[in-house]
Each structure stands twice: as structure tokens, then as C-alpha cells.
Amino acid sequence: MFTPQGPTLRELAVEALSSTERGYDLLAPKFDRTPFRTPDRVLEAVEHALRPLGPFDAGLDVCCGTGAGVGVLRRLCRERVTGVDFSAGMLAEGRAAQPQTPDGPAVGWIRADARALSFRPAFDLAVSFGAFGHFLPKERPGLFAQVHSVLRPGGRFAFPVGAPPRFGSPLYCALLGFDAVMRVRNALWRPRFVMYYRTFPLPEVLDDLARTGFDVELLPLPELGRLPDGSPRCRLVVARRA
């Protein structure tokens, strides 16, 4: 799963026994050489689906990490792009990897908790990639409300969601096992490291978005393939502030 330039088993163990924030600070220099980084083909599929919904002036990458989503927004937004994350280490890596260019939108990197955003309603598009496992289900409505509050009327919040693995499949068992281990770890060890793969079921997510005040649609991402029944392996949730 990891390249020789990625983290060692010992480094991963130290990170997993740290807090979520401290763990990502430690992982940041090698994060882009792990499977945790959103694959380029996912980023490209999302960009392709969002482009017809523009133009966009200002974009926000929620829980931006090292800035994979910032790169998408820089190609979609005309004026400015902001990445927000609570890990100073991840922000530093993103800033170094994506320097400001004179012919693109202004890019800013802000350290903040996505559950307490302090921006005014100034963004046309917000995206997030691979971060929702760091929020407990009870925190999800508050998180969505924060994103809703920083979007202009008509602004969109978009994120990809993969189809759930088939019950009993190797992937299903692996994710179930990982979440079980994390629950035991967090019950026995402090500080907690919040990361779960099975706490973001699409029907509940759509209900939370609707209750927050979003109009929601699902767009297929055909570039990422289809399941045997013909349904897409991955969809893009596009939640519009009414």
C-alpha cells in the first residue's frame, strides 16, 4: 500500500496513538506518498462534473490537507481559492506544493476547525475530499451548517461518495475491522484519533444536508466505473444553498 518514501510502520503507529491533529502534523511530510491522498482520477472526475455548473469566482477546500482539492479549485475558480485545515503541518505541505502563480486565482491557506468557520458568506463553491471520517455522526449537521453559512446564495458544496462495498466482501470486512480497532483504541487511549470509514451513510448524509437548508442532487462520475448492476461506483453530491 505504501511506497518506500512513505511512512514506516513505526511512524504510522506513533501517528495513530496521537491526537487527530498531531497525527496529521506528523504524517504531513509523507502524506502524499500514501493511499490516503485522494487519487488524481477522482479529482479529475469531480472537476469534470463541476465545470459545467460554473463559472465560480471563489472556492473553499474544507479540510484541505495538503491541497489536492485546492488544485481542483484553482482550475475552476477565477478570483480566489482558500484551503482550510486544522493541521498546521498539512497546510505547510500544501502551501509549499502549490505556490501562488501570477496568472491564477489568489490562494490562501488558513488554519481553522471546519466545525467553527469564521468566514462571511463569500464562496461560490466548497469542496471536500476524504475528510468526513474524522467527524462523528453527531457532528455532521453542525459541520454542514458551517459550510452552508460561508456560501453565497446559490453556492454549492460538493464531495464524492463511493458506493458502499458489498456485504461480506474483502473491502467490507477490512473497513469493518478498521473501525472496530479504532473504537477500541479510542475507548482505551487518550487523546482520541477520530477516523472511521463506516460513519457516513449516504441516506443519512442527504437528510442532514436537506435539514441544513441545501437543495441536493447526485451526479454520477462515470469515469470511475460502474458496478455489475450498472450503477456508478462513485457519485458526486452537489448541495446548493437555496
Score class of each variant (00 low, 15 high):
6 G>H: 00
8 T>M: 10
9 L>Q: 06
11 E>G: 10
12 L>Q: 07
14 V>E: 14
15 E>M: 15
18 S>A: 15
19 S>I: 14
20 T>H: 04
20 T>K: 09
21 E>C: 11
21 E>G: 11
23 G>N: 08
25 D>Q: 12
25 D>I: 15
26 L>R: 13
26 L>S: 02
27 L>S: 11
34 T>I: 06
36 F>E: 10
36 F>V: 12
38 T>R: 07
39 P>W: 00
46 V>F: 00
47 E>N: 03
51 R>G: 04
53 L>S: 05
54 G>Y: 05
58 A>G: 06
61 D>F: 02
67 G>D: 05
68 A>K: 11
68 A>H: 10
69 G>Y: 01
69 G>E: 03
70 V>F: 07
71 G>L: 05
74 R>M: 04
76 L>T: 04
82 T>F: 04
82 T>V: 15
83 G>I: 12
84 V>H: 04
85 D>C: 07
85 D>K: 01
88 A>F: 04
88 A>D: 09
89 G>R: 07
89 G>K: 07
92 A>I: 01
93 E>I: 11
98 Q>N: 12
99 P>F: 08
99 P>S: 07
100 Q>D: 12
101 T>N: 09
102 P>V: 13
102 P>W: 12
108 G>S: 15
112 A>H: 10
113 D>M: 13
114 A>L: 01
116 A>S: 13
119 F>E: 09
120 R>C: 05
120 R>Q: 12
123 F>Q: 04
124 D>G: 08
128 S>F: 01
128 S>R: 00
130 G>Q: 06
131 A>K: 09
134 H>P: 02
136 L>P: 10
138 K>D: 15
139 E>S: 11
139 E>D: 15
139 E>Q: 15
139 E>T: 11
144 F>R: 00
144 F>W: 03
147 V>A: 06
151 L>F: 10
157 F>T: 03
160 P>W: 00
162 G>R: 06
163 A>P: 02
165 P>S: 12
167 F>K: 15
168 G>V: 07
168 G>C: 09
169 S>D: 08
176 L>E: 11
180 A>C: 10
184 V>M: 14
184 V>Q: 11
185 R>L: 13
187 A>Y: 06
188 L>I: 07
191 P>T: 11
192 R>I: 00
193 F>G: 02
193 F>C: 10
194 V>T: 14
196 Y>D: 09
198 R>G: 01
198 R>I: 04
200 F>R: 08
201 P>G: 09
208 D>F: 03
210 A>R: 15
212 T>N: 04
216 V>F: 05
219 L>A: 14
220 P>I: 00
221 L>H: 06
224 L>Q: 00
225 G>E: 01
226 R>W: 04
227 L>C: 05
233 R>D: 00
236 L>V: 03
238 V>Q: 04
240 R>I: 02
240 R>K: 13
242 A>R: 13
